[in-house]
Design a binder for these strands. Sequence first.
DNA 1: ATTTGTCGAGCAAAAGATAAAGGATAACAA
DNA 2: TTGTTATCCTTTATCTTTTGCTCGACAAAT
Lengths: 210, 210
Amino acid sequence: MKQNPSKQKVMKAASSLFFLKGFHGTSVRDIAQKANMNVSSINYYFKSKQGLLEYTVTAYYEAYLKALEKTLNETETLAPIERLHALISTIIHYKQSNYQLTCFIQRELSLDSVFVREMAVTYLAKENYIIRETFYNVLEGRVKIDFKNYLLIQLKGMLVTPYILHNDWKDQVIGEYSHQLFVKRYVRVIQQWLDFIILNGMQTEKMLAQ
Amino acid sequence: MKQNPSKQKVMKAASSLFFLKGFHGTSVRDIAQKANMNVSSINYYFKSKQGLLEYTVTAYYEAYLKALEKTLNETETLAPIERLHALISTIIHYKQSNYQLTCFIQRELSLDSVFVREMAVTYLAKENYIIRETFYNVLEGRVKIDFKNYLLIQLKGMLVTPYILHNDWKDQVIGEYSHQLFVKRYVRVIQQWLDFIILNGMQTEKMLAQ
DNA sequence: ATTTGTCGAGCAAAAGATAAAGGATAACAA
DNA sequence: TTGTTATCCTTTATCTTTTGCTCGACAAAT
């Protein structure tokens, strides 16, 4: 996937601005200026502003899903819980190494547009499937079906929280903040929660049944 | 806080559209059309599009903080954990009863603008203070300081997750979905997590210290 | 009769997009 | 070497639509 350097330059500038101002809040002129590039060049490469968005987001998700599948393949022999741990680690690593795009996409995904719906069908469904199956394999027999949903959402929430509350986050973790350290610690926080879920599944379920 | 009905009509239409399309993705004409109202009237009432935004968001947060403080006052005599439970319940209730605005504001808060920074200083700081103090009172002596941060973020993440992953959410909870039931269940999921944190504080801390 | 609210028309700026012309580069033939 | 052609990229200038907002007229209410 070697890329045209100009194209890359535009995508980088766009990601940065989309992250700060949102898609509609960013003009093609802004992007052109930030990338030291001409407006027409951007339209030449990406056809339109929408095209730039689609190209960038698609590239993000293609690489993301590839990473998830790679992890699944490499952990086929491991126990379900180990596999889930590995998957979580991969997810957080990828998101962290594409920080701005992750935040931007997460935000934009909650909008209502044809593009978002297309992404949902093409990529989110797949991501959801992978996470769900891997997670449910761990829960197997420990928790009632209708309660699994809540736990799954809780897990997914943890996977996106740092990229939504990123303002809070930076305030809190200031000083010791670094990507590596963050990833290491946060992955462990999630895994800790997981272990709790597995051990206490039965009790939790009882409480909720009221 | 009795309001002008026209003003209310505009705010309702705006909330709905901002929720779907975002602030920059919504034009004043869209809002006017949805509210069966003239563009000029909107500018008459709110001075500008930005004014409409500020008015709406401010009203949201004023009522929100008022609700939080009311809960704090009403639970002064209770144990810290009970107090936190009550606070969480109030938060989720309020967010759920202003669903679209909650989703919209949560999304827009991650943008970079003077308005967001103003909101952060005026309201988010206060909200954060309330949640943090109430939460830390519960953790008192159970967990090391630098680990508290992670737990606080995790808690805050749970409080916003439903309003960020609302697409996933509706897919998952379909059928049994209703606001009351949701609130009841979700609050309990969080409280369950809390109980775990308190009981296992020491162990968790050890694991993370590595 | 004065304040308050509503409306249609329209302006000026911004934003998305395109057209057309001009390099640069490489392949190829004279 | 030199000239021709084709392709890819960049730039300048321009077009069109959208958007935020105002103005002045008119109506309603107090």
